[in-house]
Design a protein around this nucleic acid. Structure first.
Lengths: 225, 225
DNA sequence: TTGCCTATAATCCATTTGGATAAGAAGGTA
DNA sequence: TACCTTCTTATCCAAATGGATTATAGGCAA
Protein backbone atom coordinates (compact mmCIF):
# COMPACT_ATOMS: atom_id res chain seq x y z
CA UNK A 1 0.00 0.00 0.00
CA UNK A 2 1.14 3.53 -0.73
CA UNK A 3 2.51 5.87 1.90
CA UNK A 4 0.24 8.89 2.15
CA UNK A 5 1.97 12.22 2.66
CA UNK A 6 0.75 15.71 3.48
CA UNK A 7 2.82 18.77 2.61
CA UNK A 8 2.42 22.03 4.51
CA UNK A 9 4.39 25.03 3.32
CA UNK A 10 3.42 28.58 2.59
CA UNK A 11 5.39 28.73 -0.61
CA UNK A 12 3.67 27.11 -3.55
CA UNK A 13 7.02 26.52 -5.21
CA UNK A 14 8.29 24.55 -2.22
CA UNK A 15 5.17 22.46 -2.16
CA UNK A 16 5.46 21.50 -5.77
CA UNK A 17 9.18 20.82 -5.59
CA UNK A 18 8.72 18.45 -2.67
CA UNK A 19 5.70 16.87 -4.26
CA UNK A 20 7.56 16.23 -7.50
CA UNK A 21 10.44 14.66 -5.65
CA UNK A 22 8.18 12.36 -3.71
CA UNK A 23 6.07 11.33 -6.67
CA UNK A 24 9.14 10.14 -8.49
CA UNK A 25 8.87 7.19 -6.14
CA UNK A 26 5.73 5.22 -6.73
CA UNK A 27 5.36 4.36 -3.05
CA UNK A 28 4.32 7.87 -2.18
CA UNK A 29 0.95 9.46 -2.59
CA UNK A 30 0.36 13.10 -1.73
CA UNK A 31 -3.05 13.17 -0.11
CA UNK A 32 -3.05 16.75 1.05
CA UNK A 33 -1.22 20.04 0.64
CA UNK A 34 -1.82 23.16 2.68
CA UNK A 35 -0.28 26.58 2.90
CA UNK A 36 -0.29 27.07 6.66
CA UNK A 37 -1.21 25.38 9.93
CA UNK A 38 -4.78 26.51 9.98
CA UNK A 39 -5.32 25.52 6.38
CA UNK A 40 -3.86 22.12 7.19
CA UNK A 41 -6.07 21.47 10.20
CA UNK A 42 -9.15 22.63 8.31
CA UNK A 43 -8.39 20.31 5.42
CA UNK A 44 -7.62 17.41 7.74
CA UNK A 45 -11.04 17.79 9.31
CA UNK A 46 -12.86 17.18 6.06
CA UNK A 47 -10.48 14.54 4.75
CA UNK A 48 -11.98 11.06 4.27
CA UNK A 49 -10.47 8.53 6.65
CA UNK A 50 -8.86 6.51 3.90
CA UNK A 51 -6.91 9.59 2.84
CA UNK A 52 -5.47 10.26 6.28
CA UNK A 53 -1.75 10.89 5.70
CA UNK A 54 0.71 8.82 7.65
CA UNK A 55 3.37 11.49 7.38
CA UNK A 56 3.11 15.27 7.37
CA UNK A 57 5.99 17.35 6.08
CA UNK A 58 5.64 20.64 7.87
CA UNK A 59 7.34 23.96 7.30
CA UNK A 60 8.07 25.92 10.48
CA UNK A 61 7.53 29.55 9.63
CA UNK A 62 4.12 30.20 8.15
CA UNK A 63 1.49 32.95 8.33
CA UNK A 64 -1.80 32.51 10.22
CA UNK A 65 -0.64 29.45 12.17
CA UNK A 66 2.96 28.32 12.29
CA UNK A 67 4.38 24.84 12.26
CA UNK A 68 4.80 24.52 16.00
CA UNK A 69 1.17 25.20 16.79
CA UNK A 70 0.02 23.06 13.90
CA UNK A 71 2.10 20.12 15.14
CA UNK A 72 0.90 20.63 18.69
CA UNK A 73 -2.74 20.47 17.68
CA UNK A 74 -2.24 17.93 14.92
CA UNK A 75 -0.28 15.43 16.95
CA UNK A 76 -2.99 15.51 19.54
CA UNK A 77 -5.91 15.22 17.14
CA UNK A 78 -4.24 12.60 14.97
CA UNK A 79 -1.98 10.54 17.22
CA UNK A 80 -1.11 8.08 14.49
CA UNK A 81 0.20 10.70 12.12
CA UNK A 82 3.92 11.39 12.10
CA UNK A 83 4.94 15.01 11.81
CA UNK A 84 8.29 15.75 10.26
CA UNK A 85 9.56 19.31 10.30
CA UNK A 86 11.16 20.31 7.03
CA UNK A 87 12.58 23.77 7.37
CA UNK A 88 15.57 26.03 7.05
CA UNK A 89 15.69 27.07 10.69
CA UNK A 90 18.17 25.47 13.02
CA UNK A 91 18.16 27.68 16.07
CA UNK A 92 17.84 25.92 19.37
CA UNK A 93 14.62 27.55 20.42
CA UNK A 94 12.76 26.51 17.30
CA UNK A 95 14.13 22.99 17.28
CA UNK A 96 13.24 22.48 20.87
CA UNK A 97 9.74 23.89 20.57
CA UNK A 98 8.94 21.84 17.51
CA UNK A 99 10.10 18.63 19.12
CA UNK A 100 8.27 19.45 22.29
CA UNK A 101 5.12 20.06 20.30
CA UNK A 102 5.31 16.53 19.01
CA UNK A 103 7.52 16.52 15.91
CA UNK A 104 8.61 13.03 14.98
CA UNK A 105 11.54 14.19 12.92
CA UNK A 106 13.38 17.36 12.03
CA UNK A 107 15.05 17.88 8.68
CA UNK A 108 16.94 20.89 7.43
CA UNK A 109 15.98 21.81 3.91
CA UNK A 110 19.47 22.59 2.75
CA UNK A 111 20.83 19.39 4.14
CA UNK A 112 18.29 16.98 2.93
CA UNK A 113 16.08 18.56 0.30
CA UNK A 114 17.79 16.32 -2.21
CA UNK A 115 16.90 13.07 -0.57
CA UNK A 116 13.68 13.62 1.31
CA UNK A 117 12.23 10.60 -0.34
CA UNK A 118 15.03 8.30 0.75
CA UNK A 119 14.87 9.57 4.30
CA UNK A 120 11.13 9.00 4.43
CA UNK A 121 11.50 5.51 3.04
CA UNK A 122 14.04 4.70 5.73
CA UNK A 123 11.75 6.09 8.35
CA UNK A 124 8.91 3.98 7.01
CA UNK A 125 11.06 0.88 7.15
CA UNK A 126 12.64 1.15 10.58
CA UNK A 127 10.16 3.40 12.35
CA UNK A 128 12.85 5.79 13.47
CA UNK A 129 12.25 9.50 13.22
CA UNK A 130 14.51 11.23 10.70
CA UNK A 131 16.85 13.89 12.02
CA UNK A 132 19.39 15.86 10.07
CA UNK A 133 22.93 15.30 11.35
CA UNK A 134 23.24 19.03 11.98
CA UNK A 135 20.22 18.98 14.23
CA UNK A 136 21.36 15.94 16.12
CA UNK A 137 24.69 17.64 16.63
CA UNK A 138 22.99 20.73 17.98
CA UNK A 139 21.00 18.70 20.45
CA UNK A 140 24.20 17.06 21.62
CA UNK A 141 25.72 20.46 22.22
CA UNK A 142 22.66 21.60 24.12
CA UNK A 143 23.07 18.65 26.44
CA UNK A 144 26.75 19.36 26.93
CA UNK A 145 26.16 23.03 27.58
CA UNK A 146 23.90 22.11 30.46
CA UNK A 147 21.12 23.85 28.60
CA UNK A 148 19.24 20.63 28.87
CA UNK A 149 18.84 18.44 31.86
CA UNK A 150 17.46 15.02 32.45
CA UNK A 151 14.56 15.16 34.82
CA UNK A 152 14.23 12.17 37.04
CA UNK A 153 10.61 11.32 37.36
CA UNK A 154 10.09 9.93 40.80
CA UNK A 155 7.08 7.78 40.56
CA UNK A 156 5.40 6.84 43.83
CA UNK A 157 5.00 3.43 42.15
CA UNK A 158 3.74 1.65 45.23
CA UNK A 159 0.67 3.82 45.03
CA UNK A 160 -2.05 1.24 45.33
CA UNK A 161 -4.98 1.75 43.07
CA UNK A 162 -5.75 5.42 43.45
CA UNK A 163 -9.20 6.15 44.78
CA UNK A 164 -9.97 2.45 44.65
CA UNK A 165 -10.64 2.60 40.95
CA UNK A 166 -11.07 -0.83 39.45
CA UNK A 167 -8.86 -1.87 36.55
CA UNK A 168 -11.62 -1.23 34.08
CA UNK A 169 -12.24 2.18 35.56
CA UNK A 170 -8.61 3.14 35.28
CA UNK A 171 -8.63 1.98 31.72
CA UNK A 172 -11.60 4.19 31.03
CA UNK A 173 -10.11 7.12 32.88
CA UNK A 174 -7.18 6.97 30.51
CA UNK A 175 -9.45 7.33 27.53
CA UNK A 176 -11.45 10.01 29.29
CA UNK A 177 -8.27 11.99 29.68
CA UNK A 178 -7.87 12.07 25.94
CA UNK A 179 -11.15 13.91 25.65
CA UNK A 180 -13.19 11.03 24.30
CA UNK A 181 -16.94 10.90 24.64
CA UNK A 182 -19.03 7.91 25.70
CA UNK A 183 -19.57 6.75 22.15
CA UNK A 184 -15.88 6.79 21.36
CA UNK A 185 -14.94 5.05 24.58
CA UNK A 186 -17.51 2.37 23.94
CA UNK A 187 -16.18 1.99 20.47
CA UNK A 188 -12.61 1.72 21.61
CA UNK A 189 -13.35 -0.88 24.25
CA UNK A 190 -16.00 -2.75 22.29
CA UNK A 191 -18.71 -2.07 24.82
CA UNK A 192 -21.98 -0.16 24.69
CA UNK A 193 -21.76 3.60 25.16
CA UNK A 194 -24.22 3.11 27.98
CA UNK A 195 -21.74 0.92 29.75
CA UNK A 196 -18.98 3.40 29.14
CA UNK A 197 -21.17 6.06 30.66
CA UNK A 198 -21.94 3.89 33.65
CA UNK A 199 -18.25 3.38 34.29
CA UNK A 200 -17.57 7.07 33.95
CA UNK A 201 -20.28 7.93 36.44
CA UNK A 202 -18.86 5.36 38.82
CA UNK A 203 -15.50 7.03 38.47
CA UNK A 204 -17.05 10.39 39.29
CA UNK A 205 -18.54 8.95 42.44
CA UNK A 206 -15.18 7.58 43.55
CA UNK A 207 -13.33 10.79 42.76
CA UNK A 208 -16.10 12.89 44.27
CA UNK A 209 -16.49 15.02 41.17
CA UNK A 210 -19.36 15.47 38.79
CA UNK A 211 -18.08 16.33 35.36
CA UNK A 212 -15.51 15.23 32.86
CA UNK A 213 -13.63 18.47 33.19
CA UNK A 214 -13.35 18.11 36.95
CA UNK A 215 -12.27 14.52 36.66
CA UNK A 216 -9.54 15.49 34.21
CA UNK A 217 -8.40 18.34 36.38
CA UNK A 218 -8.12 16.01 39.35
CA UNK A 219 -6.48 13.26 37.35
CA UNK A 220 -3.83 15.62 36.09
CA UNK A 221 -3.31 17.30 39.41
CA UNK A 222 -2.89 14.04 41.27
CA UNK A 223 -0.91 12.46 38.49
CA UNK A 224 -3.36 9.61 38.05
CA UNK A 225 -2.55 9.58 34.41
CA UNK B 1 47.54 14.49 6.30
CA UNK B 2 46.17 11.31 7.79
CA UNK B 3 43.43 11.22 10.40
CA UNK B 4 44.77 9.64 13.56
CA UNK B 5 42.40 7.37 15.44
CA UNK B 6 42.47 5.72 18.85
CA UNK B 7 40.42 2.60 19.57
CA UNK B 8 39.38 1.72 23.10
CA UNK B 9 37.56 -1.57 23.67
CA UNK B 10 38.06 -4.37 26.11
CA UNK B 11 37.61 -7.06 23.50
CA UNK B 12 40.67 -7.65 21.36
CA UNK B 13 38.49 -8.97 18.56
CA UNK B 14 36.50 -5.74 18.45
CA UNK B 15 39.64 -3.69 18.34
CA UNK B 16 41.05 -5.57 15.42
CA UNK B 17 37.77 -5.62 13.48
CA UNK B 18 37.44 -1.87 13.75
CA UNK B 19 41.08 -1.33 13.00
CA UNK B 20 40.89 -3.44 9.87
CA UNK B 21 37.85 -1.57 8.66
CA UNK B 22 39.48 1.78 9.14
CA UNK B 23 42.78 0.85 7.57
CA UNK B 24 41.01 -0.11 4.38
CA UNK B 25 40.81 3.65 3.87
CA UNK B 26 44.23 5.15 3.49
CA UNK B 27 43.23 8.35 5.23
CA UNK B 28 43.13 6.68 8.59
CA UNK B 29 45.98 5.84 10.85
CA UNK B 30 45.49 3.99 14.12
CA UNK B 31 47.84 5.62 16.56
CA UNK B 32 46.67 3.92 19.73
CA UNK B 33 44.59 1.05 20.99
CA UNK B 34 43.68 0.40 24.59
CA UNK B 35 41.58 -2.11 26.46
CA UNK B 36 39.94 0.12 29.01
CA UNK B 37 39.70 3.72 30.17
CA UNK B 38 42.68 3.58 32.48
CA UNK B 39 44.84 1.89 29.88
CA UNK B 40 43.82 4.56 27.39
CA UNK B 41 44.73 7.49 29.65
CA UNK B 42 48.03 5.88 30.59
CA UNK B 43 48.98 5.37 26.98
CA UNK B 44 47.90 8.89 26.03
CA UNK B 45 50.24 10.28 28.63
CA UNK B 46 53.34 8.74 27.08
CA UNK B 47 52.23 9.28 23.49
CA UNK B 48 54.43 11.60 21.42
CA UNK B 49 52.56 14.75 20.48
CA UNK B 50 52.64 14.05 16.79
CA UNK B 51 50.74 10.85 17.41
CA UNK B 52 47.91 12.50 19.33
CA UNK B 53 44.70 11.06 17.88
CA UNK B 54 42.07 13.44 16.58
CA UNK B 55 39.33 10.92 17.14
CA UNK B 56 38.83 8.32 19.84
CA UNK B 57 36.41 5.46 19.31
CA UNK B 58 35.35 4.46 22.78
CA UNK B 59 33.45 1.47 24.04
CA UNK B 60 31.15 2.14 26.95
CA UNK B 61 31.29 -0.89 29.17
CA UNK B 62 34.81 -1.77 30.18
CA UNK B 63 36.56 -3.10 33.28
CA UNK B 64 38.79 -0.89 35.47
CA UNK B 65 37.53 2.37 34.00
CA UNK B 66 34.46 2.62 31.80
CA UNK B 67 33.85 4.80 28.77
CA UNK B 68 31.98 7.53 30.57
CA UNK B 69 34.75 8.20 33.04
CA UNK B 70 37.38 7.92 30.33
CA UNK B 71 35.59 10.48 28.17
CA UNK B 72 35.07 12.79 31.10
CA UNK B 73 38.77 12.78 31.96
CA UNK B 74 39.98 12.60 28.38
CA UNK B 75 37.89 15.46 27.03
CA UNK B 76 39.24 17.60 29.84
CA UNK B 77 42.89 16.64 29.37
CA UNK B 78 42.78 16.72 25.58
CA UNK B 79 40.19 19.30 24.53
CA UNK B 80 41.02 19.01 20.84
CA UNK B 81 40.33 15.30 20.73
CA UNK B 82 36.90 14.17 19.62
CA UNK B 83 35.41 11.27 21.51
CA UNK B 84 32.93 9.09 19.69
CA UNK B 85 31.12 6.42 21.64
CA UNK B 86 30.87 3.16 19.74
CA UNK B 87 28.82 0.76 21.73
CA UNK B 88 25.86 -1.57 21.83
CA UNK B 89 24.08 0.21 24.63
CA UNK B 90 21.15 2.46 23.86
CA UNK B 91 19.49 3.02 27.17
CA UNK B 92 18.70 6.59 28.08
CA UNK B 93 20.82 6.75 31.16
CA UNK B 94 23.99 5.67 29.38
CA UNK B 95 23.42 7.88 26.35
CA UNK B 96 22.84 10.86 28.51
CA UNK B 97 25.80 10.27 30.77
CA UNK B 98 28.19 9.75 27.89
CA UNK B 99 27.08 12.91 26.12
CA UNK B 100 27.24 14.83 29.33
CA UNK B 101 30.76 13.57 29.89
CA UNK B 102 31.78 15.14 26.61
CA UNK B 103 31.12 12.62 23.86
CA UNK B 104 31.20 14.23 20.45
CA UNK B 105 29.24 11.45 18.80
CA UNK B 106 27.36 8.31 19.71
CA UNK B 107 27.21 5.33 17.40
CA UNK B 108 25.47 2.04 17.91
CA UNK B 109 27.60 -0.88 16.87
CA UNK B 110 24.83 -2.84 15.28
CA UNK B 111 23.63 0.15 13.33
CA UNK B 112 26.87 1.47 12.04
CA UNK B 113 29.61 -1.10 12.47
CA UNK B 114 29.55 -1.54 8.71
CA UNK B 115 30.31 2.01 7.85
CA UNK B 116 32.27 3.45 10.71
CA UNK B 117 34.83 4.68 8.25
CA UNK B 118 32.31 6.58 6.13
CA UNK B 119 30.73 8.16 9.17
CA UNK B 120 34.11 9.30 10.43
CA UNK B 121 35.02 10.74 7.04
CA UNK B 122 31.80 12.72 6.99
CA UNK B 123 32.49 13.96 10.47
CA UNK B 124 35.95 15.00 9.43
CA UNK B 125 34.56 16.91 6.47
CA UNK B 126 31.69 18.80 8.01
CA UNK B 127 32.72 18.90 11.65
CA UNK B 128 29.42 17.51 12.79
CA UNK B 129 29.35 14.84 15.46
CA UNK B 130 28.08 11.51 14.23
CA UNK B 131 24.96 10.13 15.83
CA UNK B 132 23.16 6.95 14.99
CA UNK B 133 19.58 7.57 13.86
CA UNK B 134 18.36 5.33 16.63
CA UNK B 135 20.10 7.45 19.23
CA UNK B 136 18.83 10.68 17.77
CA UNK B 137 15.37 9.22 17.82
CA UNK B 138 15.72 8.28 21.47
CA UNK B 139 16.80 11.77 22.36
CA UNK B 140 13.77 13.14 20.56
CA UNK B 141 11.56 10.91 22.61
CA UNK B 142 13.25 11.97 25.81
CA UNK B 143 12.46 15.56 24.98
CA UNK B 144 8.85 14.76 24.16
CA UNK B 145 8.36 12.74 27.33
CA UNK B 146 9.32 15.78 29.34
CA UNK B 147 12.19 13.72 30.70
CA UNK B 148 14.42 16.44 29.41
CA UNK B 149 13.85 20.11 29.77
CA UNK B 150 15.46 23.13 28.29
CA UNK B 151 16.90 25.29 30.98
CA UNK B 152 16.23 28.88 30.16
CA UNK B 153 19.32 30.83 30.90
CA UNK B 154 17.63 34.11 30.29
CA UNK B 155 14.12 35.32 30.72
CA UNK B 156 11.43 32.96 29.54
CA UNK B 157 11.08 35.51 26.77
CA UNK B 158 7.73 36.97 25.94
CA UNK B 159 6.45 33.53 25.15
CA UNK B 160 4.28 34.13 22.20
CA UNK B 161 0.65 33.63 22.98
CA UNK B 162 0.03 29.98 22.25
CA UNK B 163 -2.44 29.39 19.45
CA UNK B 164 -3.05 33.13 19.25
CA UNK B 165 -5.35 33.06 22.23
CA UNK B 166 -6.29 36.53 23.38
CA UNK B 167 -5.64 37.53 26.96
CA UNK B 168 -9.25 37.07 27.86
CA UNK B 169 -9.28 33.66 26.25
CA UNK B 170 -6.22 32.55 28.19
CA UNK B 171 -7.85 33.78 31.36
CA UNK B 172 -10.91 31.71 30.58
CA UNK B 173 -8.85 28.69 29.61
CA UNK B 174 -7.33 28.77 33.08
CA UNK B 175 -10.76 28.58 34.68
CA UNK B 176 -11.82 25.93 32.22
CA UNK B 177 -8.90 23.82 33.33
CA UNK B 178 -10.28 23.82 36.86
CA UNK B 179 -13.38 22.10 35.59
CA UNK B 180 -15.69 25.09 35.82
CA UNK B 181 -18.85 25.35 33.79
CA UNK B 182 -20.13 28.36 31.89
CA UNK B 183 -22.20 29.64 34.78
CA UNK B 184 -19.30 29.49 37.20
CA UNK B 185 -16.92 31.13 34.77
CA UNK B 186 -19.40 33.92 34.12
CA UNK B 187 -19.79 34.32 37.82
CA UNK B 188 -16.09 34.43 38.48
CA UNK B 189 -15.42 37.01 35.79
CA UNK B 190 -18.56 39.02 36.28
CA UNK B 191 -19.83 38.38 32.79
CA UNK B 192 -22.86 36.61 31.40
CA UNK B 193 -22.59 32.84 31.11
CA UNK B 194 -23.46 33.35 27.46
CA UNK B 195 -20.35 35.40 27.00
CA UNK B 196 -18.29 32.86 28.84
CA UNK B 197 -19.60 30.24 26.50
CA UNK B 198 -18.83 32.36 23.48
CA UNK B 199 -15.23 32.71 24.61
CA UNK B 200 -14.95 29.01 25.23
CA UNK B 201 -16.24 28.22 21.77
CA UNK B 202 -13.77 30.67 20.30
CA UNK B 203 -11.01 28.88 22.17
CA UNK B 204 -12.16 25.57 20.72
CA UNK B 205 -11.96 27.02 17.23
CA UNK B 206 -8.43 28.22 17.79
CA UNK B 207 -7.29 24.94 19.29
CA UNK B 208 -9.21 22.96 16.68
CA UNK B 209 -10.99 20.88 19.27
CA UNK B 210 -14.65 20.59 20.08
CA UNK B 211 -15.17 19.78 23.70
CA UNK B 212 -14.00 20.84 27.10
CA UNK B 213 -12.33 17.54 27.70
CA UNK B 214 -10.32 17.79 24.50
CA UNK B 215 -9.33 21.37 25.22
CA UNK B 216 -8.14 20.40 28.69
CA UNK B 217 -6.23 17.43 27.38
CA UNK B 218 -4.49 19.59 24.83
CA UNK B 219 -3.82 22.33 27.33
CA UNK B 220 -2.28 19.91 29.80
CA UNK B 221 -0.34 17.97 27.24
CA UNK B 222 1.17 21.01 25.63
CA UNK B 223 1.64 22.85 28.88
CA UNK B 224 -0.49 25.81 27.95
CA UNK B 225 -1.52 26.08 31.54
C1' DT C 1 -13.67 57.84 8.75
C1' DT C 2 -13.86 53.26 7.75
C1' DG C 3 -12.69 48.82 8.84
C1' DC C 4 -11.01 45.14 11.87
C1' DC C 5 -10.56 42.86 16.23
C1' DT C 6 -12.12 41.97 20.82
C1' DA C 7 -15.39 41.60 24.37
C1' DT C 8 -19.89 41.50 25.40
C1' DA C 9 -24.65 39.35 25.03
C1' DA C 10 -28.49 36.73 23.31
C1' DT C 11 -31.32 33.09 20.83
C1' DC C 12 -32.42 28.59 18.67
C1' DC C 13 -31.59 23.87 18.36
C1' DA C 14 -29.38 19.34 18.41
C1' DT C 15 -26.36 16.59 20.96
C1' DT C 16 -24.02 15.21 25.01
C1' DT C 17 -23.89 14.83 29.88
C1' DG C 18 -25.10 13.81 34.58
C1' DG C 19 -28.18 11.49 37.82
C1' DA C 20 -31.19 7.86 39.27
C1' DT C 21 -32.48 3.45 38.93
C1' DA C 22 -32.93 -1.44 37.48
C1' DA C 23 -31.15 -5.73 36.27
C1' DG C 24 -28.61 -9.77 34.13
C1' DA C 25 -24.03 -12.40 33.76
C1' DA C 26 -19.52 -13.77 35.58
C1' DG C 27 -16.31 -14.36 39.22
C1' DG C 28 -14.80 -15.07 43.80
C1' DT C 29 -15.78 -16.03 48.73
C1' DA C 30 -17.89 -17.18 53.13
C1' DT D 1 -25.66 -22.15 48.32
C1' DA D 2 -25.98 -17.41 49.27
C1' DC D 3 -23.55 -13.15 48.98
C1' DC D 4 -20.64 -9.63 47.04
C1' DT D 5 -18.22 -7.16 43.50
C1' DT D 6 -17.46 -6.03 38.90
C1' DC D 7 -18.85 -5.55 34.29
C1' DT D 8 -22.39 -5.24 31.41
C1' DT D 9 -26.76 -3.06 29.39
C1' DA D 10 -30.81 -0.18 29.48
C1' DT D 11 -34.30 3.73 30.13
C1' DC D 12 -36.10 8.30 31.71
C1' DC D 13 -35.31 12.94 32.49
C1' DA D 14 -33.16 17.33 33.44
C1' DA D 15 -29.17 20.05 32.79
C1' DA D 16 -25.14 21.38 30.33
C1' DT D 17 -22.74 21.73 26.22
C1' DG D 18 -21.64 22.64 21.22
C1' DG D 19 -22.71 25.03 16.91
C1' DA D 20 -24.56 28.71 14.20
C1' DT D 21 -25.89 33.20 13.95
C1' DT D 22 -26.84 37.96 15.11
C1' DA D 23 -25.85 42.29 17.36
C1' DT D 24 -23.72 46.20 20.06
C1' DA D 25 -19.79 48.82 21.89
C1' DG D 26 -14.89 50.14 22.42
C1' DG D 27 -10.11 50.37 20.74
C1' DC D 28 -6.81 50.63 17.32
C1' DA D 29 -4.86 51.26 12.67
C1' DA D 30 -4.76 52.31 7.82
Amino acid sequence: MPVKIAIVDDKASNRSIIKDKLLRHTIFEVSLTAENGKDFLDKMKILPLDKLPSVVLMDLEMPEMDGVDAVAAGSYLYPTVKFVMLTIFDDEEKIFKAIKAGAFGYLLKDESAENIAEVLIQMHENGVGPISPGIAHKILQLVQNNSISLIQKHIPEKDKTPFNLTEREQEILKLLVHGMQYKEIGNQLQISPNTAKKHVLNIYAKLHVNSKAQALALAYEKGLI
